[in-house]
Nucleic acid binder design. Sequence first.
RNA 1: GGAGAGGUGGCCGAGCGGCUGAAGGCGGUCGCCUGCUAAGCGACUAUGGGGGUAUAAGCCUCCAUCGAGGGUUCGAAUCCCUCCCUCUCCGCCA
Length: 426
Amino acid sequence: MLDRRLVREEPEKIRQALEKRGYEFDLDTLIATEAQRRELLTAVESRRAEKNELSEQIGDTMRAGGDAAALKEHSTQIGAELEELEQELGQVEERFEQMMLDLPNIPLDEVPVGESEQDNVVMYEVGELPKFDFTPRPHWEIGEQLGILDFEGAARMAGARFVTDVGAAATLERALINFMLDTHTRKHGYTEVFPPYLANERSLFGTANLPKFEDDLFKTTDGYYLIPTAEVPLTNMHQDEILDADRLPIYYAAYTACFRREAGAAGKDTRGMVRVHQFHKVELMKFVRPGQGSAELEKLVKDAEVILQALELPYRRTQLCTGDMGFQPQQTFDLDVYCPGMDRWLEISSCSQYGDFQARRCNTRYRPQPPAKPEFAHTMNGSGVATGRTLLAILENYQQESGTVVIPEVLRPYMGGMAEILPQMP
RNA sequence: GGAGAGGUGGCCGAGCGGCUGAAGGCGGUCGCCUGCUAAGCGACUAUGGGGGUAUAAGCCUCCAUCGAGGGUUCGAAUCCCUCCCUCUCCGCCA
């Protein structure tokens, strides 16, 4: 959520941001509502002051043994007027609040302006695209033939858009989790976190998944939501807290399952494990001070890249344009891994900074200097990286003509020394 | 799931229906004291919002907030109801 003061003080900034994003929004109504809210607030408050003053007089009179009946009557009368005004204010406030929740974050100036994915900027590519003497196959073929990815079984036990890792694939994904967490905690200074997979409504408002993106989420009958990403629990770890300044920056790394309904993705990526309802990733998340955002995000992206480099997977880094960026970020960098079997670049990490957009919703602040007022912390996060898609990328990049898959060097210690995945019959 | 206790400022902890935005302590900031350090002394120290004033920092003023929401009352941290959370004991369980 944006600072409501911006609406009054710098509406042009918001207007430009909306334009750059190509985002439909009735800003003029918002501005008018804000003005109306302020007007009503002033009226309500002066009435309330009057009433408080009267109450005090009543108290004084009664303590002095006098008769306060007339004063009480007057107070009751003001109370009635007050109630009406308050109701009106409540409605306006509610409308204003709803509109504010609908307002996307303001992109940083350096974000390239564009309309769609087509306008994203590829910053660099790392690693050689693999060459094959045979036609490389997509991961679902490799996985099914080796007997390590079970799509049919998953469909029977759960439904479409699920996958079950079996045997070496299960071990491989576990190895990836451990390798990524170890790297981030031991080499990059992140604190490992293992959070709940369910979160309450407020937390999803905190990360701005609600109210706009309810359709993407699974909700339980108890009113909990399955987390669509570890960003949700991590960003909400310090709800309503005022952090000591010397705690910042805070680095968290968490492995979690992620659950998404993919309601708007019908017919898209239906084959394989590119887009499934439950996937897994290691997430990196930071709380930083204002001003540290860009430098810390850069480090975060590099931390994620280290994983892909160690796995020797070819990847590229892109900067999303204003039109393709999500609702919450000020700036987003994607890492796409090349998948020769599908012959496409596949997003494997998306790293964004949010400024105080999320922290304002979560009410996570810090105190710059002890006497100074608390300020909102700034947040950012990115995958470091998605394990399911990494597994898929390994299958496609490390496939052999015989149908086996070689295990990347760095993962072998995590797999009991296994160097190659051979066909399995469970 | 059953029984009980409790949720107050950065933290701990008082609090009679009006004089309590809240005693006291800790912590913090500034000043004094001091050969240095420590101790001591004094002042200040919640958050959000509205209005006014100022070139700004700021200053003045009002409103709200004592887990959340409702109610009683002229007036609620204080009384009543609902919900949430924490703790203790019992039960159940990985």
